[in-house]
Design a protein around this nucleic acid. Structure first.
Lengths: 155, 155
DNA sequence: AAATGAGTTGATCTATAAGCCGGATTCTGT
DNA sequence: ACAGAATCCGGCTTATAGATCAACTCATTT
């Protein structure tokens, strides 16, 4: 699950996972994926099911009165949605309007999919280019100072 | 039990648990849920039965002289009410007027339901939006400094 | 150049949220 | 204790969002 592709979101906000990524999911016996927000950047994250289980369990285990922890739980857990292979062994992800807003992805937009090994990131194509060239992103980047309890979790 | 939806409370103050959450409850063999107050924010919390049992047992087990502990016991235990699947395998939650007051949810209001994995949060839609965008909530947020005895409980 | 596979788009169908209504039960005030 | 009012609870209907299915176009390969 490495590499980089640019595909387009359709007029209904659907994102089709490219074949080369689907194949790798199959090889790893992953039956579904989870889309959620990146906690820092205007981007989306896609985790294979097993990875997501690990991360979400760790997040849920943290005691929830610390405002920083709750913020992470809200953004990561609260925005997650699961998708599976359809009968044609394709994989369509319906991006909610909230997710699209966060990541600045309008309907019919072009997005970059970045394979990070055990996860993907989905960026608005322009934002990704700017990030690569060091330009400023239009969205304010959240200041996230991780408490010790979170240092062991790799999102 | 991830992701978030916005649904509406009916004219009688009832909240219908959306299908995608109900399915998860069924998968986990949860027969009922418990609604109560969030101790910090103007919001409600919904726990699956087994999770609630665990939390309420832990809370009850704490010694009751610490004012913070007693406050948590009052707000969380004292406001709890149970709901189950109805004969049509739907799930309607009747929100008491007290709960609705705390969470600023009027009858026929729109609310956001945030799935946090092992629990839900229910917010007045506007308050949730404001929280997301960093705006000020109309209700004073409680200052909660957790004593050591509570560090292990994740509400 | 044909054929195969993949990305994209459009159309259809189903499940469900939400509104409405009527009856039952509880509460309240006299 | 009774009557009236308010609250609670289930069934039914309808508009809609989401899932499924099908088809088209483009690209790559042989």
């Amino acid at each position: 699950m490495f590499g980089f592709t640019t595909i387009s979101v359709d007029s209904k906000g659907r994102l089709a996972i490219p074949a080369k990524y689907r194949e790798q999911l199959l090889v790893q016996n992953e039956e579904n994926i989870v889309v959620t927000r990146d906690p820092q950047y205007p981007a989306l994250k896609i985790y294979p099911g097993s990875i997501w289980n690990k991360i979400s369990m760790e997040l849920q285990g943290l005691q929830g009165l610390d405002p920083i922890v709750r913020n992470l739980q809200w953004t990561i857990l609260g925005n997650a949605s699961v998708s599976s292979f359809d009968p044609n062994s394709r994989m369509l992800v319906l991006l909610s309007s909230e997710l699209r807003e966060y990541a600045e992805i309008s309907k019919s937009a072009k997005v970059s999919i970045i394979g990070m090994g055990n996860k993907f990131e989905v960026w608005n194509e322009k934002n990704w280019e700017m990030r690569q060239t060091g330009g400023a992103l239009s969205t304010e980047i959240l200041e996230v100072v991780l408490p010790e309890s979170l240092k062991t979790i790799s999102f």
